[in-house]
């Protein structure tokens, strides 16, 4: 009898604690639910905030980085003397490897008509070093810019590039508008 009494008291305390833990969980869940969103968010670079520091190439958890150069053809001037393609101190205006700015030769140059050339990024070769972006932004129209390619991005809980980005250019964007391609995306962040 004595033993039974003790046992039921212990059970009572246990179930009481369980209930209060459940209520605590509910409260935490409820408070968090105030800010809950059914929308999916992904990491993306704001090309107007990007300062082309080169950390995208080295900080991503993926090798090579999920941040790669993409080309907004609408803005491209199709220049022969392309600041994103040729080194500023290039020996001569030719496609020889020593004259190319890209360390992996990921930019392919194609002749269209005099004096215009098309520049296409080979995504498989691009490592996201932003050297071409810097060249294009300083000397050209800025049509080359970095974007996080979502086929490669693991959508980490905290983007390891965003943590180290010196210009806070990487933030979460809605998955329905997952790219900030220059041209359709303007400086104020309006699409």
């Amino acid at each position: 009898m004595e033993n039974n009494h003790k046992k039921s008291r212990r059970d009572f305390i246990r179930s009481g604690t369980r209930l209060s833990l459940l209520i605590t969980l509910g409260a935490v869940g409820g408070l968090a639910a105030k800010h809950v969103t059914a929308e999916k968010y992904v990491w993306q670079i704001d090309p107007f905030k990007c300062t082309q520091c080169g950390r995208c190439a080295t900080s991503c958890v993926m090798t090579p980085s999920a941040a790669k150069c993409i080309h907004a053809y609408d803005l491209c001037g199709y220049c022969d003397l392309c600041g994103g393609y040729l080194k500023p101190d290039a020996n001569q205006l030719s496609t020889a490897a020593e004259n190319q700015l890209c360390p992996t030769a990921a930019i392919q140059r194609k002749y269209i008509e005099e004096p215009y050339f098309e520049y296409v990024i080979n995504e498989d070769l691009c490592i996201g070093c932003a050297k071409c972006v810097k060249g294009c932004t300083s000397f050209g129209n800025g049509s080359l810019h970095l974007q996080i390619i979502h086929r490669i991005c693991l959508n980490c809980n905290e983007c390891s590039i965003a943590r180290l980005c010196p210009s806070q250019a990487i933030s979460r964007v809605k998955a329905s508008k997952s790219y900030n391609v220059k041209g359709s995306f303007t400086k104020d962040g309006k699409v």
Partner: peptide, 21 residues
């Protein structure tokens, strides 16, 4: 700085590759 040229010979401009998440 360098306006986009008007191409005569039926050049079709590629679109940037943006795979969905």
């Amino acid at each position: 700085r360098f306006p986009k040229p008007e191409f005569g010979n039926g050049y079709s401009q590629p679109t940037p590759i943006t795979p969905e998440p």
